[in-house]
């Protein structure tokens, strides 16, 4: 029983991290039709920016996080939009897919060449150890990760639903042209989504890296998981990405223990294929009117 609770908590906490990456991914898709194949690297890079800040400037983890947040929002948010997405706005989906694949390779190689090819230890922001709640014990780190992720997700939801800018962003996501006619500053809102994506990725980096260590190729599996979470949950809705992330996190943890570790990574993929074939709008997404 205690095992299952522990597994559940750790599953939800990993899932919350996946959800952060998946939600950013969904935001970009909704507002600009960008399928970011470099999303995993968008999580990998901020971890190294934090490491670099801590090593070179000799600052603490929190300051390093803030520095990384700013740098990421400039590089992975604004610059990514300006230099790559904007010029390709009318080229169709495929060239941009190729460009983000190339961007991912570029980021990986840059980190490998200029920082290190070896996995780097990364300080956890929460103390190790377990906490007893009644009869079960759960890891403090898991709880802390979960708490931070939940706060971030709630803040994002509040921003999207309660603030004027947030509602404008949703309007842009749903229908860009109508939003423009209604006087929404579409370009600025799109920029916001790129900034938010970068921020979510940086936060995900802070939460995920202590477990996996910082390595240049971390993004490969993380990016894949973010896709899967976004699609399984429902590509057209933020809460779909959230639910998808949590689900994949749980599946990941439970299959590792109860099913073979060899095919651990296969389960989310099979889920992905089944969902795409039989429920393309995602488990939690809205169905769109389908033609024959």
């Amino acid at each position: 029983m205690s095992d299952i609770v522990q597994l559940f908590v750790s599953g939800i906490s990993t899932g919350a991290i996946y959800a952060l990456a998946a939600m950013g991914f969904t935001l970009l898709w909704q507002t600009t039709g960008t399928i970011n194949f470099a999303q995993g690297e968008f999580v990998m890079l901020p971890a190294f920016i934090m490491l670099a800040a801590m090593n070179l400037l000799d600052v603490g983890l929190l300051s390093a996080f803030v520095i990384s947040l700013v740098v990421s929002m400039v590089l992975l948010g604004a610059a990514f939009k300006r230099a790559l997405v904007d010029p390709m706005a009318h080229h169709g989906v495929l060239p941009l897919i190729i460009a983000t694949i190339a961007l991912g390779i570029f980021m990986k190689e840059a980190v490998k060449t200029f920082y290190s090819a070896e996995a780097q230890p990364f300080a956890a922001f929460a103390p190790e150890g377990a906490m007893r709640i009644g009869p079960v014990s759960v890891s403090i780190e898991n709880i802390a990760v979960l708490a931070v992720a939940v706060v971030a997700i709630l803040a994002l939801q509040l921003f999207l639903q309660r603030t004027f800018a947030g509602r404008c962003m949703q309007a842009v996501a749903q229908n860009r042209e109508s939003a423009r006619i209604l006087g929404v500053p579409v370009e600025r809102m799109v920029l916001y989504t790129f900034l938010i994506n970068a921020a979510l990725a940086t936060l995900a980096a802070l939460l995920v890296t202590p477990t996996y260590l910082a390595k240049f190729d971390n993004g490969e599996s993380l990016g894949l998981i973010a896709f899967i979470a976004a699609i399984v949950g429902g590509f057209n809705q933020m809460r779909g990405a959230l639910a998808g992330g949590l689900l994949i996190g749980l599946i990941d943890n439970f299959t590792a223990v109860y099913i073979s570790t060899q095919y651990r990574h296969a389960i989310p993929l099979i889920l992905l294929i089944v969902v795409i074939l039989f429920r393309p709008q995602g488990l939690f997404g809205r169905a769109e009117e389908r033609r024959l």
Binding site: F227, I231, Y263, H265, L269, I270, L272, I273, I276, P280
Partner: peptide
Amino acid sequence: PALRVQHHYLAFVTLGFNVLVFL
């Protein structure tokens, strides 16, 4: 799958298939 879904969805189905074959 291509009969049911297009573009990015198809990219992901085939991507999933590739990883499965590798496994």
